[in-house]
Design a protein around this nucleic acid. Structure first.
Lengths: 125, 125
DNA sequence: AAACTGTATATATTAATTATACACAGTAAT
DNA sequence: ATTACTGTGTATAATTAATATATACAGTTT
C-alpha cells in the first residue's frame, strides 16, 4: 500500500492518511477484508507517532470504511453494507428536506431544482 | 434596543450580538434605515470592548443586514430579497454537493436520486 | 514467554478563535 | 477651528480547539 505525506499540505497528517486509504478503497485498489498495515508498522514507515495513524484508522472505522478486530488488526470493510447504505440514505433525505425548504423560501421551481441536481451529477461523473 | 449577553452561553459575544440584532431585523422589530446604537455606545452599555461590537456589526454588514456610513453610524439595510435568494441558492448547492458525494458512496443511481427529490417535492406541495 | 495486535489516559505543541488597546480619519455642531 | 461624536486599521494578548505525541495497558497468536 502506497501512502505519501505532503509536508507542504495544510491538511493534517491523520487526514492525509484517511483520505488516501479511503480513496484506495473507493477506487478498488483495496478489496473487502484486505488487511491494512498495523497502526505501528504504518507509523514506523511514515516516521510518525502511531497515535496519528490510530486516529486516521479511527475516522475510517467511524465512517464505515474499515473494521478493526482488537489485538488482530484493521481490515477493509465490505462495500455498501446495508447499514452504511441506510445511514447514507437517511443523510441524503435530510439534505433533500433542507433543500425543499430553501427552494420554497426563494421560489425556486421544481424544474430548476432538478436541473441543479442534474448539473451537479454530470459535473461529478 | 434590547440586547442580553449570556455568560453561560458557549457562543462568543460578537455572535450573540450578531444573532439578536439579525433576529430583530427579520422579525421586524427593527425597520429599514433605523439607526443602530454606535459601536462605542453599545460597547459601553454591555461593558465590553467596542472592538467586539464592531466585529458583530461587521458580520451583519457582510451578510447584508445593515449598512454603515463612515463617521456617521450603522443602519438597518433595506430587505434585499435578491441577496437572500443568492444566499439560499448557495446553501442549496452545498446540500446538493453533499448529496452527490453520499450517493456515490452507496452506489445510488442518478435516476434513484432524481426520484427521491421528486418524491420529496410532491410531498411538500 | 515473546512478539505482535489495538486501547486508554495524560500531555505537549500548534493553530485558530476571540477579545482587546490604541492611534487614526471623517462628520457634525458648537 | 475646536470639541465630541462617528467608524477604521494595525497590532497584540488571552483563550480555546485541533493536532500530534509518549507511555502504560490489555488481548491474540505462535
Amino acid at each position: 500500500m502506497h501512502l505519501y505525506l505532503d509536508n507542504q499540505s495544510t491538511a493534517p497528517i491523520y487526514e492525509q492518511i484517511y483520505t488516501q486509504i479511503k480513496n484506495q478503497i473507493i477506487v478498488g485498489e483495496l478489496h473487502e477484508n484486505d488487511a491494512l498495515p498495523s497502526i505501528r508498522t504504518l507509523a514506523k514507515d511514515l516516521k510518525i507517532s502511531f497515535i496519528t495513524t490510530k486516529r486516521a484508522y479511527e475516522e475510517l472505522e467511524k465512517d464505515g470504511f474499515i473494521y478493526t478486530i482488537q489485538a488482530k488488526g484493521c481490515y477493509v470493510a465490505p462495500k455498501n453494507t446495508e447499514l452504511l447504505r441506510e445511514e447514507n440514505l437517511r443523510k441524503i433525505e435530510e439534505h433533500i428536506d433542507q433543500i425543499v425548504q430553501l427552494a420554497k423560501l426563494c421560489g425556486l421551481s421544481h424544474h430548476e431544482l432538478a436541473e441543479m441536481l442534474q448539473f451537479a451529477l454530470e459535473e461529478n461523473k
